[in-house]
Design a binder for these strands. Sequence first.
DNA 1: GCCATTCCTGTGAGACATCTGAGACTCGTG
DNA 2: CACGAGTCTCAGATGTCTCACAGGAATGGC
Lengths: 233, 233
Amino acid sequence: MNGNKGRLLVVDDEPNITDLLAMALRYEGFEVSTAGTGRDAVRVARAQPFELIILDVMLPDIDGFEVAKQIGSTGHRVPVLFLTARDATADKVRGLTVGGDDYVTKPFSLEEVVARIHAILRRTQPDGGDSSRIEFADLVMDMDTREVWRDGQGIDLTDTEFRLLRYLMLNPRMVLTRGQILDHVWEYDFGGDANVLDTYIHYLRKKIEVSGSRLIHTVRGVGYSMRVPPEKA
Amino acid sequence: MNGNKGRLLVVDDEPNITDLLAMALRYEGFEVSTAGTGRDAVRVARAQPFELIILDVMLPDIDGFEVAKQIGSTGHRVPVLFLTARDATADKVRGLTVGGDDYVTKPFSLEEVVARIHAILRRTQPDGGDSSRIEFADLVMDMDTREVWRDGQGIDLTDTEFRLLRYLMLNPRMVLTRGQILDHVWEYDFGGDANVLDTYIHYLRKKIEVSGSRLIHTVRGVGYSMRVPPEKA
DNA sequence: GCCATTCCTGTGAGACATCTGAGACTCGTG
DNA sequence: CACGAGTCTCAGATGTCTCACAGGAATGGC
């Protein structure tokens, strides 16, 4: 899970957010810098090049758009993943998906941020040409079109089901603890009952295991794991 | 979505406009230069050749038409896409758009500008021979004549309906978020209720799905997607 | 074999996104 | 100036998704 996948800059005035993202993204193999103000971000971004910038639109000093503009004005364009409040007035959110940019609303799930980052990098760095398609056994997922097939048969998933399955499929054979799954798939401020996870595992199994063997295995006392049935060393 | 499709020059005195267009067009695979004045534009255009020039008619120094003339006077003719305010001067432009030129009124939708650029290049560079016709399932659209057929049956669409359907058909199977659709299909200064999109999806469905299966699928919590019903790998 | 723990799974309520019909508004036209 | 077409707003209806809860089943330790 290591190996440098690129240099990212995370900009947010809440240290909780920058820390959370920096930790998760470093674990994903990125090299991460952070900034707490727009002024800082511009300074840092001018000092060294970044593959992508994660940028809160509501910064204390300079507006996020302005930051993006100032950074983009030097040298060539850096793609941006904007962070925005969910209740952001419509006019604020306009224009954010232009030119390969994208946005996620706060509170987000780590899984979602990581997925968007990979999607943007996939589009803007065609050489890295990772397909948006992942496979496990006879299960196939296209992360762009959000289509899922088991043995060629199309399967409809809800948003949460999709995010959960994506996380499992991106970490095949790994035993993922309940904590890890909740932290990555659910929004970071989720304070509810951990039993939702059980429920969604159940939903997923009903949808993807009706016509085939078990793929999502319970590891009692720990969590879940994506495996093919004959578990051999 | 990448690969150099040609060199464009964007000329407008509002940096917001040049930035927006440059961002979107670079993402579309063009190589883009910008200029903020007529004088600048002429200088830049004489220094290197462009496939096409996007030119505001209302520039602070030199009139847009004059700029086009001065650029065209050297070497061979460069096609122009004029940008103009939605007022009386539109008529004036119409008369002057000869020989493959075209114009769009401000405020425009990105989708429209990109479509016009492709149309002009199609006409002026017959070698690039992209057809103006796109198909999806039994749905056919001619982007030049703005005709649409479902299973051979002609369908009348209003302008907004047409732009929306064109964007969907140009991104088949992709799940397009509401944000993406609003950013690309609606005019850049649209600050209204995001619910217009729902309404227009509804209009489109009523027109293109009465006599056939569902093509525009709702992806709840995300956006919409053009699909054929039997989803198979 | 018994118990405690963990996990499974059905039910249901509330929240929320989307659909849909009706109407207001703008603009060009007869 | 009335009219119609097109765009957009609004609000209620509808349906789906998410999550909480709770009893039942399975598992592992003793």
